[in-house]
């Protein structure tokens, strides 16, 4: 049996936020404003998404489903760009992160929907949107961290990379250490999440399912599947993003092209 918490219970949970705000003011910790704004933002965003999802789930329209997914991807692409300390100039600044994140997320989501879950139709919004959202959120973090590490590495270690190029190394050989560091930076969050899942923390999706009355073993199966898919989407998007980044940060004459970063 599922217990619906109701609006009153949700508001009651916000008491702890007010308690934190009081403590912060008393101890002059200075996070009241940012915490309250974040809480308000989350409330508005979730309320809106709830409304949109209700409409999309009821209509089951392909256009609406893909429209929502496209909007999610566009916002996530912007978020990747905003997280870059040194972003690529021009269209690459948005395009590289957004397309590679979308590529990884889309391939894995379509795979899961058509081969593993099999709803009818395959893009049924009840499955497609949450699944795609989870892939997107994690691929976004991985790609953003990876690209940020890559541009940072190449900027900081330019002389070493050029020294390698001067021995006759190709751009791929010379960039291997920077690629390795970038890939590691992008994969660390999902590797850490997989390591800690089930021992340190019960993942949000699984907890939500159990609270909503699902059988724990079914919730675990879903969670396992989702974690594997997330790791796949993140890795795929990240690898293509890092390779695209190397292509953009070098040229066909095997030179470093930091001038293709904004402000360089």
């Amino acid at each position: 049996m599922t217990i619906d918490p109701g609006n009153g219970a949700v508001m009651l949970a916000a008491i702890f936020l007010i308690l934190n705000a009081g403590l912060s003011m008393a101890l002059q910790l200075g996070f009241v404003r940012s915490m309250l704004i974040a809480a308000l933002r989350m409330t508005v965003q979730l309320a809106l998404v709830g409304l949109v999802l209700e409409v999309v789930l009821t209509s089951a329209s392909a256009w609406l489903t893909f429209g929502v997914m496209g909007f999610m991807a566009a916002v996530a692409g912007y978020e990747i760009m905003a997280r870059q300390e040194r972003r690529f100039a021009g269209l690459w600044g948005y395009g590289l992160g957004a397309t590679t994140m979308l590529l990884g997320s889309a391939i894995v989501t379509v795979f899961a929907l058509t081969i593993q879950i099999g709803p009818d139709p395959w893009y049924a919004p009840r499955y497609a949107i949450p699944l795609f959202g989870m892939m997107l959120g994690n691929a976004m973090t991985g790609v953003a961290l990876g690209l940020n590490a890559l541009t940072g590495e190449v900027s900081a270690r330019r002389r070493g990379i050029e020294a390698h190029l001067l021995t006759g190394a190709t751009r791929w050989q010379a960039m291997t250490p920077a690629m390795r560091r970038a890939a590691t930076a992008g994969m660390v969050p999902i590797i850490n999440a997989m390591t800690a899942t089930g021992i340190v923390a019960l993942p949000g999706m699984m907890t939500g399912q159990i609270l909503a009355g699902a059988d724990p073993s079914q919730a675990v199966r879903y969670q396992l599947m989702v974690m594997f898919l997330i790791a796949g989407a993140t890795g795929l998007g990240l690898i293509v993003a890092v390779m695209g980044g190397v292509i953009r940060l070098t040229d066909s004459r095997h030179r470093i092209r930091l001038d293709r970063l904004r402000g360089s």
Partner: peptide, 13 residues
């Protein structure tokens, strides 16, 4: 490989 350049402050990878 044919023409080798050694900078004033060599880099190391």
């Amino acid at each position: 490989q044919a023409i080798v350049y050694v900078p004033a402050e060599p880099g190391w990878w």
